[in-house]
Design a binder for these strands. Sequence first.
DNA 1: GCCCAGGGAATCG
DNA 2: CGATTCCATGGG
Length: 280
Amino acid sequence: MKNYNPKAYFIDNNTIVEDIAPFSLEQTLDCGQAFRWELSENGIWRGIAFNRALCVKQENNRIIFYNTSQSDFDGIWRKYFDIDRDYSEIINKISKNNVLKEATNFAGGIRILRQDPWETLCSFIISQNNNIPRIKGIINRLCENFGEKIDGGYTFPSASVVAKLTAEDLAPLRSGFRARYIIDAAKKVSDGEIDLDKLYTCDIDEARAELMKICGVGLKVADCTLLFGFYRIESFPKDVWIKRAMEKLFDGELPKVAEPYAGIVQQYIFHYARLTKLEL
DNA sequence: GCCCAGGGAATCG
DNA sequence: CGATTCCATGGG
């Protein structure tokens, strides 16, 4: 059954989108896949992506994109928020498995954002052995120090800009041992040793291997980068929570029905595990 | 002070 | 190979 039919209206300089359930702005922007969104007054989320600032708010089954023209919505945000994918179809399919069905109750409104690859790579390098508030702080300082000022904040600095910096230059970030990892990634991306564009389509294991050429990128950071920065939804990042959850819930093996969208299902399992603390 | 935070590199055996 | 230890920094 295909009744997923999101509608966009362009009124007064705003874009309003309706009929996109299941969709939760909060779950999507605050689930640890993106680090540059903050909830401000009146339930409005403010963030920057692809060199654009956005204010956006959810009211039930309606999303309001403030000061957003049709061309900005169609050109940037529609894709960024994965508006055109019907998540209910995925949830229906994986719900053949009762445990997965239960898991979707905890974060079924999550969408995988289609983020900028370099920003995602850099962000998940910073994420290692770190917690989300501090990850956000380091990324904010990176943007304030080396990004460009735009209306509403600062852009994420490009790889070529970061490649020219030294670990000492990055001292104000207080990113600790990760500083040299950030610079190594920037150099390998900007000088073409790693061609990020290729990673959208090449074999997933080859994509992992490419990213893992970077010092500071192991399997988990590579998988997060591929999932959140390249929309490689067959990628299944395994952190400590997921490993524990997979053992308890599935004897370590993901059910077959989930394989085509493993990355999306990973999000459901992750939040199920964390929110229930796996007291099963 | 101690522990941990959605890991990874270096260094063991 | 698998297991252990260190890595900066900040908050609880």
